[in-house]
């Protein structure tokens, strides 16, 4: 059926654009940074901004893959260019945050970062511990739902294709695509007897709040370090967030 085909395409788009396979992430989930390694990170991060640059780099790599995911999503490239950009600009970081639940070990609150699982401690040099904790809380709440790969694929697609974003030119066309994705997702959940997932998903506002916190933290960081060259951050990161 067309809906079944859509489901397959969403899953394939997602699998083709994943940085790491879920099996590998599962296998390595107890491979954590040692105390010494965390100290080394913190020492290296001492010049202002080193850790910010590092995280911005990793985030930008993840966002580039979100763009590839979007391009492979059925119907996305048929949207007008303005709307493709609006959806990615508003949704790319949200998709990365959703995907983070695959790379998160809820049992010891660590996330896969640069080759190993890292606790929030590793990111202390960023100077925004509360924000990092909120991200970890979000990943933990999503992890607790034990989503399958197909479910994460649909969650990402639906975070991206959201007709409620501001500045869309052809809202109706986006709404149509969103509607198709929602129907396919519901069918998948019914087939796998996972309908209880929908009411348990974190509210959209939570993702939005994390993204605005990110912007606030970045602005605060840039205010604190006015001498930092804009070129310290990857161009795509600058384009999206500054």
């Amino acid at each position: 059926s067309p809906m079944e085909q859509l489901t397959q395409k969403v899953l394939r788009s997602y699998q083709e654009t994943c940085q790491l396979g879920s099996e590998e992430l599962q296998l390595r989930r107890w491979d954590t940074f040692s105390r010494e390694e965390i100290c080394t990170y913190q020492r290296q991060a001492r010049p202002p901004g080193k850790m910010w640059q590092r995280c911005a780099g990793r985030l930008t790599e993840a966002i580039q893959l979100v763009v590839e995911f979007a391009k492979r999503l059925p119907g996305f490239l048929e949207l007008c260019q303005n709307d493709q950009i609006v959806l990615l600009k508003a949704g790319a970081l949200e998709v990365v945050l959703v995907q983070m639940c695959r790379a998160f070990n809820g049992e010891n609150r660590t996330v896969f970062f640069e080759g190993k699982y890292a606790s929030a401690e590793l990111f202390r040099a960023l100077g925004c511990h509360e924000f990092i904790s909120s991200i970890f809380d979000f990943a933990q709440s999503l992890c607790a739902l034990h989503c399958s790969e197909s479910e994460v694929a649909f969650l990402c697609a639906l975070v991206l294709v959201n007709a409620n974003r501001r500045w869309l030119q052809d809202q109706l066309q986006v709404a149509r695509l969103q509607g198709q994705l929602e129907v396919a997702f519901r069918l998948l959940l019914r087939r796998t007897q996972r309908e209880e997932l929908l009411p348990r998903l974190p509210p959209q506002a939570r993702l939005r709040a994390l993204c605005s916190q990110h912007l606030e933290q970045l602005q605060a960081f840039l205010r604190l370090h006015p001498g930092l060259l804009p070129s310290a951050f990857p161009p795509l990161y600058r384009e999206l967030f500054t």
Partner: peptide, 16 residues
């Protein structure tokens, strides 16, 4: 368009 030229380029690039 000018403001989002990298995003624009990534979207246009069919080889990636």
């Amino acid at each position: 368009k000018e403001k989002h030229k990298i995003l624009h380029r990534l979207l246009q690039d069919s080889s990636s």
